[in-house]
């Protein structure tokens, strides 16, 4: 299917449509009535105070919350028009299509090469040449190739924090996802490493749909095309307060709460 991105270019990144989404941990409602249209091949930032359900929302998009005992979902999330909670959807395929980068870099305690080759191998790629090509391409896309090309056999744990996070991004790219989810990917990194990741995100946004949760207002303003502001309701359920293009949210917010939050009056 041909998808057009923000700027009218064709794009292989997936579009996500969230309809009347409610999410519960047991009896506790973590998200209430979320409706959201996320464009393909763009960066969408999710901001909001701690505990408002940003991570929970992100983890719904690749069904990582399936693993949590007692969690429950109402409503639908469509990826390219298909509900990801549909019984016919294979969660393994979904996660291959919707990759995730975590807050703390989590490279596996194996070699750099094996870290990147892990995903493709699980999806049936066994040919050594093919794997080498994938590893090289993924590392190049993640702007890490030049730094590690001479030590692919070394443990990934020996890399710096910023390098580890880019390795994790390369690992996600290795399975050719449409969407990349990032949960505060820079919160454990220094400013230089953060800038590198932001540059990388801008490059990747040409081909991938990126959704980033961030605590850092400047980061959201710098990198994202659209921004969603979440907040807790009195019963602590998270809900979407305002959603729009990043420039509008930051310069001309419609909701008073958004304005208070981005000007640092709370949160």
């Amino acid at each position: 299917m041909t998808i057009y991105n923000f700027n009218g270019q064709t794009c292989r990144g997936g579009k996500i449509k969230v309809n009347n989404l409610n999410f519960y941990y047991g009896s506790f409602q973590a998200l209430r009535n979320i409706n959201l249209d996320i464009p393909g091949c763009a960066i969408t930032a999710i901001i909001g105070p701690s505990g408002c359900g940003k991570s929970s929302f992100l983890r719904l998009l690749n069904r990582m919350n399936d693993l949590i005992y007692g969690s429950r979902i109402e409503g639908t999330i469509e990826l390219d028009g298909k509900n990801i909670f549909d019984k016919t959807v294979d969660v393994v395929d979904l996660r291959k299509n919707v990759g995730m980068v975590f807050q703390k870099p989590n490279p596996f305690p194996i070699s750099i090469f094996d870290n990147i080759a892990f995903g493709p191998k699980q999806h049936g790629k066994k040919n050594k040449m093919e794997l080498e090509e994938i590893v090289e391409n993924s590392l190049k896309q993640a702007a890490l190739w030049d730094e590690v090309k001479d030590k692919l056999g070394q443990s990934a744990l020996a890399l710096s924090g910023g390098q580890q996070q880019r390795l994790c991004i390369a690992r996600v790219l290795s399975v050719e996802p449409e969407v990349i989810l990032m949960d505060e990917p820079c919160s454990a990194l220094d400013p230089m490493a953060t800038l590198k990741i932001e540059d990388l995100m801008r490059t990747l946004a040409k081909n991938y749909t990126i959704i980033i949760v961030t605590h850092n207002m400047q980061q959201a303003a710098r990198v994202s095309d659209t921004t969603a502001f979440f907040m807790m309701e009195p019963d602590r359920a998270g809900s979407l307060v305002e959603y729009g293009s990043t420039s509008e949210i930051f310069t001309n917010p419609k909701d008073k709460r958004t304005e208070d939050y981005i000007t640092g009056r709370f949160g």
Binding site: M64, F102, C168
Partner: peptide
Amino acid sequence: SYREGALALGAT
């Protein structure tokens, strides 16, 4: 975090 990383890559 290792398990999550692997599952998020679509590993069974």
